[in-house]
């Protein structure tokens, strides 16, 4: 099969990769913010569940998590299908790492800022959202960019539960055409290009926050 044809077939898989990654990234951001803030809380009842979530998803393998959600959860009556399982596993996994980023960035805001907010008699919520959060976000962005690339790389794992994304499509093509070297070279280049897009996108976001700060 000529390169153009291979590329055309692979591009349908590429689209699914982008969709799964984007969906998981969305979930990851939500989880990271919730768990990161919860872990920064002084209330242990808020802190502990978040800590458990973070430790479990950081402490086990992403692929094991994916298999658990796809194969084990249905036995508990939760059958969400391959695509949703893929998005859930990737998103929860990245969210756990992201929570640590959020927590670290919040902790890195100098104590003086909190003191000043207390001195101005701001409410805790207002302190968090108007004083701490805007200062913490710029510190979160560079590690968040790295996590986004890790997420993209992890999206290849969902080929193992038969989600027809890029790597899965490559495997199908390999068995039908046997043009192994060409296919996997194209696939690696495609992932690299996506990673470069993420890096470029994150740069723009970082610049915007820097100017605003």
């Amino acid at each position: 099969m000529p390169y153009a044809e291979l590329a055309a077939t692979l591009s349908s898989g590429l689209l699914v990769t982008v969709q799964v990654t984007a969906g998981a990234a969305l979930l990851a951001v939500v989880m990271a913010v919730i768990a990161g803030l919860a872990r920064s809380s002084r209330n242990p009842l808020v802190r502990w569940p978040a800590a458990t979530y973070v430790e479990i998803f950081r402490g086990t393998s992403a692929l094991v998590q994916l298999f658990w959600i796809y194969f084990v959860l249905p036995r508990f009556g939760i059958d969400i299908g391959a695509i949703a399982a893929a998005v859930a596993a990737l998103g929860l996994n990245a969210g756990a790492y992201g929570a640590e980023v959020v927590r670290g960035a919040i902790r890195a805001v100098p104590q003086g800022q909190r003191d000043a907010a207390v001195a101005l008699n701001l409410s805790p919520a207002r302190t968090l959202f108007r004083v701490i959060w805007p200062q913490a976000v710029p510190a979160m962005l560079p590690p968040a960019g790295n996590l986004a690339i890790e997420l993209l790389k992890n999206s290849a794992l969902v080929s193992l539960i038969a989600v027809s994304e890029l790597t899965f499509t490559a495997q199908l093509l390999r068995t039908s055409t046997l043009q192994t070297t060409e296919i996997f070279t194209l696939v690696l280049l495609a992932y690299f290009a996506l990673a470069l897009c993420i890096t470029a996108g994150m740069r723009r976001v970082e610049r915007r926050w820097k100017i605003a700060a």
């Binding site: 999206s155 290849a156 794992l157 080929s159 790597t167 390999r174 996997f184 690696l188 992932y191």
Partner: peptide
């Protein structure tokens, strides 16, 4: 940069299928 930005799984496949060739 290339090795860091591409999935380990695809790298594993690459070596597994291409090295024998």
């Amino acid at each position: 940069e290339f090795v860091r930005s591409t999935p380990l799984l695809v790298q594993i496949y690459f070596l597994f299928y291409v090295l024998p060739e």
